[in-house]
Amino acid sequence: MFTAKTNQRSKTTILAGLALLGFISIVSYFGFDNAVTDVGYRPEQPIPFSHKLHAGELEIKCMYCHTSVEKSKHSTVPATSTCMNCHVAVKAESPKIAKIKESWETGKPLEWRKVHKLPDYVNFSHARHIRARVDCASCHGEVEKMGVVTQMKPLSMGWCLDCHRNPQANVVPAREISGIFTGLDSYEETAKKIKNESPSRGEGKWIPMKDCAIEGAGVYEHEVGKASVAGLVMPKKLALGPENCGACHY
């Protein structure tokens, strides 16, 4: 029953088992990290739309199409009419435009595939970040260089907090290509302000939350720029993002 090889076999089995266990634990620990599973997601869109051509070469600002980004939580995908502003004349007969034309004539929207997805229990507001002069590239990468939009950042909570805790090092300041309104400051001045003036952790004006069971809950106060005309969109003063749970999960 027990031959001379048995000792060797049992040793091999134990070693193989340990190696397998190590492999599984490493894969489950690192492999399901957002940086591994989410980054690099590049779905094929219904139309081979190239940001590299439109934003990169033609220098059309991000906000020409994604207009609601400074007023709404959502940065909306443009309506078909926005495409047709130019494509009534430019490359109107191209087969790549056929689907847009069809959508334009029938009123049936194009089914773009969403690339950057946050969990539904996160209340992320684009407008807040845009008005604080945080550039699109901070979260989306340099989209004007992408032929097909790819997710470049993990969009995990830890990654969000990197910027909220230390904006100078991590935030990309508003760039000209995004079309973000920086008020009376130029883009260079905004970049300088983000690098030098935005408070580092613990320096912002911290307003503790009243009657909250969670110890240490509160918000950093943001001073909102005052416009001389009511209703004018004004950029917020650059400040540290809030760190308490209720700022994003409410």
Binding site: F32, N34, T37, D38, G40, Y41, R42, P43, E44, K73, H74, T76, V77, K117, P119, D120, Y121, T150
Partner: peptide, 23 residues
Amino acid sequence: WTSDTPPLEIIDDMDNQQKVKAQ
């Protein structure tokens, strides 16, 4: 590498809620 398949979600908690979302 890049991938055309949506990100893997082993435990999807409340990531995808049944509600009306923008667009």
